[in-house]
Write a protein that binds this DNA or RNA. Sequence first.
DNA 1: TAGTAAATATCGGAAAATCTGATAGGTAAG
DNA 2: CTTACCTATCAGATTTTCCGATATTTACTA
Lengths: 299, 299
Amino acid sequence: MANPDTMQAFVLAAELGSFSAAARRMGKAQSAISAAIANLEIDAGVELFDRTARSPVLTEHGEALLPHAQAILLSNREFMAKASSMAEGVETALCLAVELGISMRPLNDVLRGFAANFAHVSLEILAPSPIDTAALLKGGRADIGIMAEQESYPQGFQFRGVGHSRLVPVCARDHPLATGADISYRDLRRHRQIISHSRSNAASTPKGEIKSASIWISESPALIVDLVLAGFGWAELPYSVVAGHIASGNLVQLNYAFQQGDILEGIDVVWTERHALGVSGRWMRDELLSLPQVAWRDG
Amino acid sequence: MANPDTMQAFVLAAELGSFSAAARRMGKAQSAISAAIANLEIDAGVELFDRTARSPVLTEHGEALLPHAQAILLSNREFMAKASSMAEGVETALCLAVELGISMRPLNDVLRGFAANFAHVSLEILAPSPIDTAALLKGGRADIGIMAEQESYPQGFQFRGVGHSRLVPVCARDHPLATGADISYRDLRRHRQIISHSRSNAASTPKGEIKSASIWISESPALIVDLVLAGFGWAELPYSVVAGHIASGNLVQLNYAFQQGDILEGIDVVWTERHALGVSGRWMRDELLSLPQVAWRDG
DNA sequence: TAGTAAATATCGGAAAATCTGATAGGTAAG
DNA sequence: CTTACCTATCAGATTTTCCGATATTTACTA
């Protein structure tokens, strides 16, 4: 296997059409490039250049091997680029936990910027159910969380609200509530509500979101959608989760008599003091915090 | 950029968990591996191994860089593999010309075998219209052709019949012939026939395939299909070309009163003496010639 | 046609990198 | 405590690479 410098000489000579030019570019003597390529030809067992003319031209074999040589150089450069990126304190990998039901759309621009600025940091995006998100952060599995706001966070957690997601009350097409306009609290209380586990977990007091006497609970927004679709009850769900079903007519949006504006659920960006963020993690957090609040509003 | 031997030392040490074991495997002294890795750490600017324990273990940085080092080794091996393959006389690339309207399906197994046996030969498959196939071979653009049999081939062409493709007479759903059973020659002669250019080109006498008084000609089976679909006439086309349209009901198969069996068109594998086939080309040709004749029958 | 500029191959000696073998020091296990 | 195995380091030998000079060929020009 040949030295990377040899490969560089081969590639430069091929691209510039001249051993001398390659030598000048690499800051070496012409004889060095000549010998290096001659040795490469011996190692490879094939002639790479046709030297009958004044300037060497690639043979068919050389033409076929050139892309492979370029690939070798590329992987070498990537090794060194990743190494020096890590040497500067940039972390190896970053893990985001974006709670199920929160739209990924506002993230897209941030991720584009991340890919451009931190090409050598591998990114992992988890989509945990609401009940798991905090645990992922606490255990160090995830570095940054994006989740529905909590009453309280465990010790050592840092968080900042970044916006609100719009909750839409829905029921199935053939549900009794589907046909009613101006639905009152009493109407709601008569039918089963399906709520997300996170907002009524044992540690936090149920808040105003519970509007019915009969409650089913699930930890997964997708499961809640299935339950609602099956007619088991109504639910307040993020717009991004139900938009498709509303468009297709399988779910119907309820019109509350008692509330004209949107039902909003706060979204927090969360990280921990314990597991310090690296360069790219801080960049990601700051980008998330600087997004306009309305970005999260709709799916 | 580091020497491939250095990368090999890094990878082996990481995989074996020991510098000494890597040294034994590479047939070098332990001090060589120790020094090589130490130098690599200096070049990269990061510590790759934690040496506090008896055996070195990868640091987080080393863990992140290991796949890149393996990629470097892989691309180096591929370079050398391709080179030695070419040194043994295996050609760089092989080009097949499979005439439009001939089914690719029988080729699949052959191509699988080709990929396995000649991983370093890049394969190109052209799909020329019937009139172009011979020209591609003559000009050296293609190495092997698979085409409808000809009355005669140019000087220097070698060919062997390998089977027959089944021609299906079809017309559009709303064509007058669509409703008739037991169609006679006279019926056919009354309606426009659309034929492929190759079988009536100036050099060869029109054969029995011309059954109508009114003729349109196209060089492309796909164009013929469009013309037939538009109701401009009827045509005899390879089953593979019209199967989908027959299934969807847009084309109707004609029932000839005068012919009970299938209409068959010979398929030849063609190559030239002038442009000698290499190792992989001969393999490909022999595989094609040894396919069962019936393989080409249906699309 | 002769001449010039530029390109490549080759050679000897210098410089650099790598390898070996021995040695010292550390770690885990009996 | 002893043994076995591991890594780091050092000096010297060996191999590789590099440079500078030179010969030769090619393309182009006066």
